[in-house]
Design a protein around this nucleic acid. Structure first.
Lengths: 329, 329
DNA sequence: CATCGTTGTTCCAACGATGTAAAGACCGAG
DNA sequence: CTCGGTCTTTACATCGTTGGAACAACGATG
């Protein structure tokens, strides 16, 4: 691998002159510039990023800490973050926490200015004490707890309310919710939106219709749905806090020969590609994932450049995608 | 951020002694070792990986070049690769190519010993000339073309044959295939397995039943299925070259009120989590993704350590997961 | 007490890049 | 022909780490 030294020797100039050419410094004599450029070409020189960053005091990486890549929402988001980071010459390091406190702690511990310039976090279990970050960071989703970190995400209350209003507007009266969670900030807000929508339609809030889910996987949605179908008086609609739960719920319904949407309307959250092709296709709250990824990366870029540290709270748009799980073809 | 120098000053020893303690060098006096360890603790020292790797001549990263994270197979695989890489103290850099030649070329160009120690590639369009790699690499899937690079993957011919045999054993005679592709190596092999299974059952190979798919997304599967259902004599079973195609195909069938599996049996490939929860659930060829990830990373580790460069071809196991899309409950 | 081998520590150079300061080349003005 | 100012290039130090050689301390040996 060619280094600046090799190029310099070939071009017959000093190392620094080559460095100047590489970095676009203006005052290089045309003749030398040409010779250096030829030498660069001939050796196929590529800068050693490690060395450059060591000298510059940056690493060229940002961390993306998320629960699991096998969850479609995070996989899609990761893809978008990688694309957005590229525009700022950042490479993305993905850390999986599997939603556990231990996993999140170890991911955070491994972060530091020597490894990454900044971090994007999607935490699920972290405590206040854990946020002793040494690099600029941004939270995706919600503040489960009150920590001084910027945030990017949608208005979860409004989004949930929109989803449940949709169910109410279709005439549903006994609407369940799947995905309550003791620690997850988004879960609390979506529940709040659910409550608000019921309240404004003067529908009662029924405890037994709110089912918790510890993980947001398909299996959890299926289990929750089964318990709902076992009720003396099962719901006629269900709002799931993410699409995977909804997919699991629809699966459980199908196994009991409960028809969606005739017997049971289902709304999800995240608008995974999977939900467009399921049978029936799934009505879902669609956050603008591209906007989230871009906003998060841009925010970190500003913070990494200027050392100011104003907290920001960026709200990204969402929409409701209505499909067959609430309105039959 | 504390450096070795800070720790050394605090402990009252030289930088090198601290380095020796950090790296587990045996001959350090107990007394000094204790003082250094206390100083390490007190300063919260974490080695600067960039500097360490610069000195050691490695980067601590491997690249994972794949089409797109939003494709579940690659998302799951990426998660497993990250986990496997952790055991060798490697961080994973994910590059998305979006299946285009340009994307793959630019990903490859950005690779080099200054950035990564090794690379795992899942190419779809690359040409022979492109494989001028300067780091150890391994291909996932198949050699589309004849290049001297190690490979890890399943026996695609046998896997496809197993899938189609399954359909034949259920009495299907008119079996379609979705996913033929002009350049993709795996596509050719899966088609070969399909052909072999037909041949051994003395079933005719019918051209119109083999449908190409340029991308392997759900939409492509749906489009292909529609064209098959438009045939004068449509198939009674279909083998899709991946699960996304199969999901799209089942969706298209449902829209035409074609029942799966009664009117049409469907087999996929990849065994995505999504396929377990679809309605009907999808019979699929299940490659052992964990084994693939581990084998690829381990192979690269061996190659990065010892400079020998024997080509390896690692075959990982697969199985057929039979579900409702071929056998009704 | 000189010598030796073992153990423990330090100093120096190097990895590849860039910022700083100083030196060299060149120009026109006085 | 010197001076002062702009270009242009260079030498050097530096980022944080580690390998190697040098050095120092030590008890054991002859």
């Amino acid at each position: 691998m060619a280094t600046l030294k090799d190029v310099a020797r070939l071009a017959g100039v000093s190392v620094k002159t080559v460095s100047n050419v590489v970095n676009g410094y203006s005052f290089v004599k045309a003749d030398n510039r040409r010779r250096v450029e030829e030498a660069l070409e001939a050796t196929g020189y590529r800068p050693n990023l490690g060395a450059r960053n060591l000298r510059r005091g940056r690493t060229g990486f940002i961390a993306l800490v998320l629960p699991e890549l096998s969850i479609p929402y995070f996989a899609e988001l990761a893809g978008l973050v990688i694309a957005a980071a590229q525009e700022h010459e950042w490479n993305v390091l993905i850390e999986q926490t599997f939603g556990t406190l231990a996993g999140e702690r170890s991911a955070l511990a491994s972060l530091g200015p020597h490894l990454v310039d900044a971090a994007i976090l999607s935490p699920e279990a972290l405590q206040v004490d854990d946020f002793q970050l040494s690099v600029p960071a941004v939270l995706l989703g919600e503040h489960a707890i009150d920590v001084p970190i910027s945030r990017v995400g949608i208005d979860n209350v409004a989004a949930a309310q929109t989803a449940v209003r949709h169910l109410i507007s279709l005439g549903h009266q006994r609407i369940a919710a799947i995905g309550a969670h003791p620690h997850r900030g988004t879960a609390a807000l979506r529940l709040e939106g659910y409550r608000a929508a019921l309240a404004e339609a003067s529908l009662p809030f029924v405890d037994e219709l709110v089912v918790p889910a510890l993980n947001y996987h398909r299996a959890d949605g299926a289990a929750a749905m089964k318990s709902l179908l076992d009720l003396r008086n099962p719901p006629d609609a269900v709002f799931c806090f993410n699409d995977l739960l909804a997919i699991g719920a629809m699966r459980a319904a199908a196994e009991r020969f409960v028809r969606v949407p005739q017997d049971l309307a289902v709304v999800g959250f995240d608008n995974n590609e999977e939900s467009v092709y399921s049978s029936p296709s799934l009505t879902s709250v669609a956050p603008d994932k591209g906007a989230i990824a871009r906003a998060a990366v841009d925010l970190l870029h500003r913070r990494a450049e200027s050392r100011d540290s104003a907290l920001e709270d960026v709200e990204t748009p969402f929409s409701l995608q209505v499909r067959e799980s609430t309105v039959a073809r």
